[in-house]
């Protein structure tokens, strides 16, 4: 499960996703947005998460399409009027703007899917703990309680049914009262256990000195290299954006798209930024595929075979 981009240091993933989100919001240009979306899609597909994508697709498309349709209906800015709809002018600019919004929304929604898949809770908490260790610890302990309470509540519901406490039967008032009883049982029980948990924490020296943090993640050379590449390409893109490149002006009047060398350089470094993870993932895929087909590279096995035979013949 953990291979390629997903197995990299959480810092790399954080940098990548932060950069992508920033660019999705800043760089208002169809080419850039489409590239970003393609990069994310390629990453997800290479990670074998097509199913995950497919499941979210109806919602994503609905959201995106409604933005594309609604924008021209409500915004009438722009110089090129295409036609009139219910006495309202529909302008070319508004339609294009709506389409741009659609792409942007699509990108961000796919970003979320990819982010959720790659940056799991423990990675997030690791990053979070670096910034705020105490809060992170509390959050982690609290997170554990959610499934724990669910399991306990299920048990309580089952057993309390034996004494007539059941939220499934009776009048609304009784059901509400029973629900409260169940929660009360859960709360008393959990507080009781929490006291023991507290004992166990103090017994193990909680709060006796300044805490250190153990980390299961280690940054290796590749992590550092990718981090550097991402930073450089991201910075270059950002610098060009600050110079005013990579912006498409639609309102109040659409300009001609002229694509100079500056835009080309910016696009190049942006492509590098977006496609690094997909590239890593692709490399991983290729590695396994090729190693499956190729024969064992070393001939040690053969050698021992002949040697033992020759030994025997002696």
């Amino acid at each position: 499960m953990n291979s390629g981009f997903r197995s990299m240091h959480p810092g790399v993933a954080l940098l990548y996703y932060a950069g992508l989100l920033l660019f999705a919001l800043l760089v208002f240009h169809p080419l850039f947005l489409a590239t970003e979306m393609a990069g994310l899609l390629a990453l997800l597909l290479l990670q074998g998460q097509g199913r995950l994508l497919l499941r979210g697709l109806p919602f994503i498309l609905l959201m995106a399409a409604s933005v594309a349709l609604l924008n021209p209906l409500f915004s009438h800015r722009g110089a090129h009027i295409l036609f009139y709809f219910l006495d309202q002018p529909i302008t070319l600019e508004a339609v294009l703007y709506g389409l741009m919004m659609m792409i942007m929304l699509l990108t961000i929604l796919i970003w979320f899917i990819s982010y959720n898949y790659t940056v799991t809770t423990d990675k997030f908490m690791y990053l979070f703990a670096a910034a705020a260790p105490r809060t992170a610890l509390l959050t982690l302990m609290a997170i554990r309680f959610v499934p724990l309470f669910q399991r306990r509540l299920r048990q309580i519901t089952l057993i309390q049914r034996l004494r007539g406490v059941d939220t499934g039967t009776g009048s609304l008032k009784k059901r509400m009262r029973d629900g409260m009883t169940l929660l009360k049982v859960l709360l008393t029980w959990s507080l009781e256990e929490a006291l023991q948990t507290g004992d166990s924490m103090t017994a193990r020296g909680y709060g006796s000195t300044k805490r250190s943090t153990y980390s299961i993640f280690k940054a290796d050379l590749q992590d550092k290299l990718v981090m550097l590449l991402l930073t450089v390409s991201g910075m270059v893109t950002l610098l060009f954006w600050l110079q005013g490149y990579g912006k498409l002006e639609i309102y109040p009047r659409m300009n001609n798209m002229d694509f100079g060398w500056q835009d080309a350089v910016m696009y190049g470094s942006f492509c590098l930024f977006v496609l690094i993870p997909a590239g890593l993932e692709g490399k991983e895929k290729w590695l396994w595929r090729s190693s499956k087909h190729s024969t064992y590279p070393s001939d040690i096995l053969k050698k021992t075979g002949t040697r033992s035979m020759s030994y025997r013949s002696q």
């Binding site: 193990r204 020296g205 943090t213 153990y214």
Partner: peptide, 13 residues
Amino acid sequence: FSMENLGIPPAVM
């Protein structure tokens, strides 16, 4: 958790 509480350095942990 217990080692973190006593501030033991990561390599030792």
